[in-house]
Structure formats: C-alpha cells, structure tokens
Design a protein around this nucleic acid. Structure first.
Lengths: 371, 371
DNA sequence: ACCGCGTGTGGTAACGTTCTCAGAAGTTGC
DNA sequence: GCAACTTCTGAGAACGTTACCACACGCGGT
C-alpha cells in the first residue's frame, strides 16, 4: 500500500506488496516474461495501475545491457540534408522501439569526440555518425574498436571498417557536370564547402577504386573532374572554390568567382545551403540566372522549386539514406555481424530553369535589337 | 589486471584492483568527490587510462537520480521553426552538460503520449514540448503532476501550469495584417494550417485576457481579426482557410481560395512551409506575386530572400525561443521552483517584395500600353 | 507408488555506480 | 600523553530491475 519513501515513485516491490505477490512474480507480470497465472497477472496489472507504476528504464538497461537508444552525430541540423536524413532515422528507430539522442558537431572534430564520449557513457546501443570534415579521427576508430556498432552517414572514412550509406557522389557530380557541358558551358566552377580547396591532381586522375572509397567532397570533385576531362575541358584551379559550409561563405566565394577576369558561366554547388549562398551573391552582384550564370546544386530542398529561377538540382534520396542507415544499424545491433559495406544510392538530376546555354542574355539583347 | 568477464568493459572494481585500492577510493578518484591523496589519485587515473575505463552513466544515474538528459517533443523536425529552435535547445543543453532525446509527433496526440511514456521510462530530467494541435491533453497534465519539469515551446496549453516560451502571436499577426491593409488590401485570407477551421466568432471578439493565453493558431487568427475589425473590414469565413500543416495542404487550400468568385488579393500564411505551398499554388495557377496576390508569411526561412519574389515575412527569434526554453527548463531542474510564466518574444516584420498594393498588374499593363 | 515434466511461484544474486558509515592514520592543542 | 580534529581509506548498503535457481504442485506414464 505504502509507496517507497522517495518522491512517490512506485517500484516493482511496491506493486508486488500491493498485489500480495513476490517481487519476482510482479516483475514477470509487468515485464511479460516467464510464466504467470492469468489471475495473478491481472492482479499485478491492477496494482501497477492504481499505484501509477512506471518502469525504470535505467535499471532495466543496467541488467539487460541494452538501452534501446541510438546516438546520432551530425554536422548541423539546420542543413536540409541532415534534418531530412534525421527524419528518416527517427522514424525507423521509433518503429523498432528505439529512441534517438541527437548531437551537432558543426564540423568540429573535438566536439565530435566529446559527443562520442557522452554517448558512450550513456551506453547507446549504436551510433549513426556523419564524421566532421578533416581533423583527427582516432576517436572514431577507438569507438569502433570498443565494439559499438556504427554506421556512417553521407561521408566515408577509409579504413574504419563500418557500414556507410550515402550518395554515389562521384557519378552524381559527373552527371551534373555533363549536364552543364551539354548546355555548352566550358567555364564551370564548383563551390565545394570544404575548408581546404579540393584540387583534383592529375595523379589522382586514373586511380582505380577511388570511386566510392573517398569522402564526399573529394568524391564530388572527382566526378566533376571526370566529366571535364572526358569533354577535354581545362581544369582551372581558380574555379575550385572552397570556403566554409555556411550560406555566407558560399556567397563570398561566389563573389570572388564572379570577379575573376574570366568568370565562370556555370556554378555547381555541393549542397543546398551553399546553393542558397550562390544565388544570393548573384542577386547582389546583379547577375541574372540562368542568363548570365547557370546554377546547379546538390539536394532538392523544399524551396528549390519556388526560388527564382526554379532550381536545377541533383536530388538525393535523403530520407531513404537516413532510414537505410538506421535499418543497417539496428540489424547489426539485433542481428549480428555481416561484413561492413558501402551503400551508394543513386542521385537524380532534376532540370528546372536555373541551367541553360551560356550567353542567353546576349541572345535576348539580340532579339530585342532585332525588333 | 584482468578485466571483468563480460565484453572487456572495465569497471571501477577493475580499475581499483589494478591500482591496488578499494572500489570506494577508486570511485572517489574517478568521480572527483570525497577526498583522495594526490598519490593514489594519480595511480587510479593511470590505471583507468590503461584499462580504457569508461564510466557507466546508467549506474550513475540510478544512484544520483539525474540523467542529465532532456526530452524534446516536437511536431516535425523538417519545419524550419522547429529545427532552428532545436538548434537553440541542443546548443544550450550541451553548454550546460545535458544531452537531448528527440521525438517527432507529426501533430498526433497519441504519438505524443507514446513519446512521453518512453521519455519518462528513460528518466529524463525535464521536457520541452510543443504540444500537438488538438486532441486529448491528459498525458501532459499527468506528466506535470508527476513532478517532471516541463517547458512548452511555441504553443500554450491553458491551465497546465508550466513555463512557456513563444511568439507574441496575436500582436505579430495583427501587425502583419495591418501591413497588408495599409497596402490597400481589403480581401485578405489566412492559411492557418490547423486541422479545423479557426473561426474567430464574434463572441470571442472582446474577451479580455485571451491575448497570450491561447494556443498559437487561434492567437494568430485573433490578431488577424483584431486588425481587420480595427480597419472596419469584413471577416469572410471563406477566407479562413485551414488544411493540414504540409506544403501540399497549403497549396490545395490556396487553389480553393483562388477559385472563389471573389478571390483574396492578399494571403497571410502561418508558417514557412505553408507559405511555400501558397507560392507553389500561385505559380501553378499562373497568378503573379505580388502583382495579382500579395503574400506574407510567418518565419524568415533561409530561402525567403531568394524566393521569387523575395518574401515579406514575420521573423520570429526562433533560436532564442529554443534557447530560452532550454535555459528556463535547466534553471527549474537545477534551481527549483519559480512560479511558471509565459514568455512572449516579439516578432519583427520584414518587408521584401511579395507585398504590394493590390492591382499592380493592371498598373503594369497600363504602363506598357502607354509606351 | 515412483519418476519425470511443465507450470507457477519465491528468494536472491547480479548490473556498476554513489553514498554512508566506521575506522585508521596523521596533526594539532592543551 | 591524551583528547579532538582532519585527512584518507575501506566495507558494505542502496538504486530498481532482470536472471538464475530452487521448490511446490498437479498430472500422466511406467
């Protein structure tokens, strides 16, 4: 009858006393394991209800060794790629009875390490990580070595030996670049977002196996290079623009590009936030898209269609990427060990109005003069 | 020397053995409480490092009664309002040593109840909840009654007796409506996103104290009504459009509005996803903005400036709302009980190009004819 | 009448930490 | 030289659950 002394939170012994059975029996009735007669089962349930019993997940996790919790470590939840992927993750996790602890790293390796530490202390059952660009990766391999299941999202860390789900970046970037080339562009720039400029050196050009075995930004840069080389176009270092991952970083980078003596006639941006920066800069500089500059971006953000002009994009199956990462992780947690593998989903090129032949503006002027 | 039998995870007794001290001493050295001689302290630390000891947060939480974890229950992480607020929450939480468990409800009260249940089992230290629109709220009051600190985000639940942080919705909506009226609009519609149409009945018109004491959608509707009544304009029920909270719901609602015999010349949308739907529908219908229809939306999404035309919006201090909610919650968890109160932050009207005088299209035509 | 078996039940040991208490060792004060 | 105090240490309880073992009971088969 009397609840435990502390703040009125009923425990199994309390329920057992109230129902007149042993703790073991009450625990079996409430936990749904072992065997309990229907009569006592009912009695225990009633006692639990009247006492407002709530199972203590901590104690349960202590003994079962599983928390039914996943740790998710992302760069920045405000990026459409990440919040859509997160939606895929949380949905799948919930449908299989798991919760999600979220952490942002802002591409900071030390924040990432810190996040991993607290998640390990919390004894999460597994991790979904989008590793920060660059920096030391020791903490990642340490975590993997400790036996905690991990799945990498969007980016790959060679040699880590874990599952990874992401886009077939090299191919998608090559397709995107080809699209621009087919429109007649030869001066094509990329806005990569990485911290150091990604220079596709000639020596990398024909390294076999680099496809899919590299991290996102370099893989996309490689795809860009593939298409350029394939078309016999010149790779200009000044067209390989890397700033930060923020909108204004991309805007600044775009302004630099446009102030070149030979500015590019087309820009390929590596994610939707960067694309936003490119558009903003063009608008500020008074350059018209696609008349003066064609723009092609990664990620089909929800606003891509409404922007001016409607944006041509490489759509990633983002929700599916998140969902698949989660499924893979849960299967590994519950099932056991397959060999880790990379899952590269295909991108889809969606052409809207931001890509066109170069020099359209001139044509329009010509048309105007002709009247 | 020998680690515990199970999967090679060292525990405090393991560390103690290795350092040649008792468990109690090792625990003190590692936990930084009680008093330990500098010499043994060092020895224990070394032992912990060589064994790769990781504290078990579950066991710690069991005994201390605190998990340093917050539960966050939102409608939809893909909505800019929510992911920006979430960013404010996670940042503040992390800076004060707390983690965050995230749950989406999709405005479904039963999912919300389910989420609350698992969060309670996980023994989170507090909750930040954006309650689902409508539905039974028993689970919320039960949770509050159980003594778990809670802060409401964006929406208010009268009588719940908890802190709440959000926008001064009524005032912001009134300001927004007034802006449209000043442009000369008289046929102004709202796209609210609620499930049932929000009809500001005449009886509510002058109820004192409704300001701030009501949930978001009705509060904004009330602000709209305030401004309309103030200007002596007619409130037409067919201009009060409520569908779902998704983009396509708003698009459908907009199409209905535009097919009225007397369509509105201005639309006020209650969040950025809805605004997107409105713009999309206008584009599909071939209506030009602001020439045919002015659009004003809540929330200054990152794309608002780049959309065509650049969007006039009511900006909410979203990050601050999330951050403040988290601060309030943590203060209550750590500090103790102030009286719960409502915190209403001011919105800011940002006019860009999507709002103009009605009938601009006619003017342009006239100008064209004049040449 | 005995054994074997399945079902229901209770006692109790874990899980890994912190907390409480008691005592040992060293230090100070008279 | 003894009491009083501080600093350090260790043994063991506690948190709330599940896992494990033992036992009582009823039942059918040899």
């Amino acid at each position: 009858m009397r609840r435990s002394a502390r703040e009125g939170v009923a425990t199994i012994p309390d329920v057992a006393r109230h129902a007149g059975v042993s703790t073991a029996t009450a625990a079996r009735a409430l936990g749904g394991y072992g065997s309990v007669s229907p009569k006592t089962h009912q009695r225990v349930l009633v006692a639990a209800a009247t006492l407002g019993y709530r199972p203590n997940g901590l104690a349960r996790s202590m003994i079962t060794g599983t928390t039914h919790t996943l740790g998710v470590v992302l760069a920045d939840i405000e990026n459409p790629f990440f919040y859509r992927a997160l939606r895929g993750i949380t949905d799948t996790a919930r449908s299989r009875g798991y919760g999600v602890v979220l952490t942002n790293t802002d591409e900071d390796a030390s924040l990432e390490r810190e996040a991993l530490t607290t998640l390990l202390e919390r004894r999460v059952d597994g991790l979904i990580v989008c590793p920060a660009e660059g920096g030391d990766r020791r903490h990642l391999s340490d975590t993997v070595d400790s036996g905690l299941p991990m799945v990498l999202l969007d980016r790959h860390v060679p040699g880590l030996g874990v599952d990874m789900v992401g886009l077939d970046n090299r191919r998608a970037a090559a397709d995107a670049t080809r699209c621009l080339i087919q429109h007649g562009h030869t001066r094509i720039a990329i806005v990569t977002g990485g911290r150091e400029p990604v220079l596709p050196t000639p020596t990398q050009r024909n390294v076999p196996g680099i496809q899919g075995s590299s991290v996102t930004t370099p893989a996309r840069a490689a795809g860009y290079r593939d298409a350029m080389v394939e078309a016999g176009l010149e790779l200009r270092p000044e067209y390989l623009s890397a700033s930060g991952f923020h909108r204004d970083d991309a805007a600044a980078a775009t302004e630099v590009l446009m102030n070149l003596s030979e500015p590019p006639t087309a820009v390929l941006a590596f994610d939707s936030i960067l694309t936003l920066g490119v558009l903003l800069a063009l608008r500020r500089l008074g350059r018209r898209c696609p008349d003066d500059v064609s723009v092609l971006g990664f990620d089909d953000a929800e606003w891509a269609e409404v922007v001016s002009p409607p944006l041509s994009v490489v759509r990633q199956p983002v929700y599916e990427i998140g969902s698949k990462a989660c499924t893979l992780l849960l299967d590994r947690i519950e099932g056991g060990g397959r060999r880790p593998s990379q899952h590269r989903l295909k991108g889809q090129l969606i052409e809207r109005d931001s890509t066109a032949a170069p020099g359209t503006a001139v044509h329009e002027d010509a048309a105007l003069l002709a009247t």
